[in-house]
């Protein structure tokens, strides 16, 4: 029973193990690494990425891809900064940001499902569009001086003496918990898996394919917008060039966290650890001091490559085993 449990969660266990090994390696090598706040900082620095990666995970599980998320984050920061500068109510700004993000995702999902535009291309259009609007708002960086935002940004939730997290971390962890439950215990969540596994079969089994596919992109838009709000707490500014390539980080996190890019397999918990692994690699490189921060990118790409190839090998192996079984019959 335990073995079968292990088997079923094999890839996520590998991811968590990898995280632990990296953490231990860091702790063994560098003084001051083994400090609870180092770990908490990982969460604080990457809260927005965790949230974005959640949305991406849903899209990837459904068999699609969303490369607009980086621009959405930048757009939301810019948009919020602009409205706050004009004296808008911060709550209204947040709600409006979330609505715009969700609606944008819905439109992309609609194009993908109803007009059969490739997900990559449809969301590429979204990426350009959001970036473009950023620059229409302003080509300069706008800082956020709204007291509510500053308060949220600077508020520290003390867990223990010298140990704190930000409100963003709470939001991120809450999102992880809620979406994990949605994926596991709701019809919508299970339908996402079914469609990612085999869209044709899902249709024949009578599942609402169109509804689910479009919702997934809307959800990703929502998560990206929420990530953008959290990111605006983090930087307290909006700038059109922010977060270029964030979508690739989110995809890499999901893949390292065990999400299959062919769809049908993945968890948000895994994606969270995928984000944390990237974060810890970065931390180690900072602690090391001499290495260029670009090693982070290279290391992440190497991990990505390793995971993708491994997935592929496991897949083909499974197929050949089945073939032999069939031949034996």
């Amino acid at each position: 029973m335990i073995i079968s449990m292990l088997k079923k969660n094999f890839s996520i266990i590998v991811t968590i193990l990898l995280f632990v090994v990296l953490f231990i390696a860091g702790a063994a090598t560098y003084k001051g690494f083994l400090n609870a706040q180092v770990f908490l900082n990982l969460l604080i620095d990457n809260a927005y990425l965790i949230i974005v990666a959640i949305g991406m995970t849903f899209v990837l599980i459904s068999g699609g891809i969303d490369i607009s998320v980086g621009s959405v984050v930048a757009f939301v920061c810019m948009f919020s900064a602009h409205l706050l500068q004009k004296g808008w109510n911060p709550v209204a700004v947040m709600l409006l940001s979330l609505t715009v993000g969700t609606f944008g995702g819905f439109i992309m999902g609609y194009m993908i499902h109803c007009y059969e535009v490739q997900p990559f291309i449809a969301t590429l259009a979204g990426q350009f569009l959001y970036r473009g609007i950023c620059y229409v708002i302003s080509t300069e960086s706008i800082s956020i001086t709204n007291p509510t935002y500053s308060f949220i940004a600077n508020y520290q939730i003390r867990l223990a003496p010298k140990m704190y997290i930000s409100i963003s971390v709470v939001i991120a962890l809450l999102m992880v918990a809620v979406t994990a439950i949605v994926l596991k215990y709701t019809k919508f969540g299970r339908n996402v898996y079914a469609i990612g596994g085999n869209e044709h079969s899902a249709g024949l089994m009578g599942l609402p394919v169109a509804h689910v596919k479009i919702s997934v992109y809307a959800l990703s838009g929502f998560c990206a917008a929420l990530g953008g709000i959290v990111f605006s707490f983090y930087t307290l500014s909006g700038y059109g060039l922010q977060n270029i390539g964030l979508e690739m980080d989110a995809i890499a996190s999901a893949v390292i966290g065990g999400t299959l890019l062919t769809g049908g397999v993945g968890t948000v918990i895994g994606s969270m650890f995928g984000v944390l692994i990237q974060g810890i690699i970065q931390t180690i490189i900072i602690f090391q001091g001499n290495l260029s921060s670009w090693w982070t990118k290279v290391a992440v790409a190497a991990l990505l490559c390793l995971f993708v190839v491994l997935q592929r090998v496991i897949e083909t192996k499974g197929q050949s085993v089945k073939q032999q079984k069939k031949a034996a019959v």
Binding site: K184, H200, S201
Partner: peptide, 29 residues
């Protein structure tokens, strides 16, 4: 039941039988 198996291979056996009409308890599957 079709010749090619029209199920989702990535889901559990039980889920393949019940997906689309899952029994619920407290709003959860």
């Amino acid at each position: 039941v079709y010749q090619e198996v029209n199920l989702c291979a990535n889901l559990s056996v039980a889920e393949n039988i019940f997906i689309g009409r899952e029994p619920k308890k407290n709003g959860m599957i």
